[in-house]
Design a protein around this nucleic acid. Sequence first.
DNA 1: ACATATTTGTACGTATGTATT
DNA 2: GAATACATACGTACAAATATG
Lengths: 249, 249
Amino acid sequence: MARTRRRTRPRAQQRESGWDAIAGALRREIEAGEVDVGARMPTEPILMRRFGASRYAVRRALSSLQEQGLVRIEQGRGTFVHDGFLVSYRLGERPRFTNVLIENQITPGQEILSIESAALDAEIARSLALALPARALRMELLGYANGQVVKHDINYFPLPRFDDFKPHLAETSSVTEALARFGIADYRRSHTSIVGRLPTPTEARLLRQLPSQPVFECFRVDVDPDGSPILAGRTIFSCERVRLVMGPE
Amino acid sequence: MARTRRRTRPRAQQRESGWDAIAGALRREIEAGEVDVGARMPTEPILMRRFGASRYAVRRALSSLQEQGLVRIEQGRGTFVHDGFLVSYRLGERPRFTNVLIENQITPGQEILSIESAALDAEIARSLALALPARALRMELLGYANGQVVKHDINYFPLPRFDDFKPHLAETSSVTEALARFGIADYRRSHTSIVGRLPTPTEARLLRQLPSQPVFECFRVDVDPDGSPILAGRTIFSCERVRLVMGPE
DNA sequence: ACATATTTGTACGTATGTATT
DNA sequence: GAATACATACGTACAAATATG
């Protein structure tokens, strides 16, 4: 006789079983609104007692809920119901972060992480129509909507042309405005390419999002009215909080 | 004295430890090409011996690699190095699946899963400018590139107008061609909205992709030259195999 | 067609580490 | 420092899917 009793039920006769049942029960409770958004879920020991299951099953269930984006697990603090809101970001010939969000009655924001001169890799240099070796002004920033981080940008401005651009960038709260003050009244998006993938740990941290939830990675090139590239960059959007839209509203 | 010896090393003095180290070692081997793409990884017992670790640690490491999209784990068969290729899909005013892929020297394909009359929900009906209750021809299909599934489409054609459209759809291998034979020589994309998320189990199965890797979910509306909606639908793209691009090539 | 071995999945118990309160 | 809460880790046992003879 085995030392411990096993309870792996015969699979038939039961719709859900094991950790799947626990996850399902918790999911239904969350979706029914029985737990407030942002509130703490019961702790693992409590759930073990409630479902009469081992810690393995409880943790597997919670982990599954986190992967589905319903909860956020934090070591030493607890497990919390995940909150989410979705803003629409319009892609087009003239994408302007500020305007794009104002359309949606949403307060935009920006935090500049760094502005510095940097060497370019082949990919970016080609986008900016520069011969290697080349340098550019590299600007890294976070974009906010209603106080929540929604994107992380890295922008490159080709350097002979934008040598004195840094103060303008630092002083204004918008790239568009900085470009206007630099004498570029209009520019348009020349190229965009979008891949979907899971975030790196750094990106998940910067965007304050679950590592199991995807991001949009957008490579883009903007050109001035003459068609000269003035800006190449990469944007990471949080898929938890951003939807991309195209076409007339 | 404890019954078994514990080996949780003192954290300092060690760059990687535990399952993280195992995952790292395996990842480096895969990325260095020491394991062929599509080939089987060593089994769990072998890895346990090799790393001197428990099954827990080995399984945690493999699971982490699967989440990163590097391997695919199949019960009863083994763990395999995941293969991936990326096709570019051009979004624009006139997206044509077949042409879009041919540009890239890729062989397109299509498999129709179903064509039938169906009732519409409010969202789709609004897109098609129909008053509820409304019906439409519902077409479900898979899109292939070089023999691999890359998208899953559900299209709705408004019904009074497209009453006799079904045979055309069934006979041709392209929606564009079917529309042409029905007398619609040209149409354009009116609206597209894209969200990124993890696939449902059904979607993961249809697209033959990892459940931990994201998909693009695109809602779109096509209109004829007069501006009347002729097609509303939803496309699920596999982010593992599709990149969306906009702008001139 | 069937039995057997292999391989991954689920499950429980226990012990200890680490972060937060 | 103590208590709480999640993370990692080992050992064991059986289930389910697949491959093999």
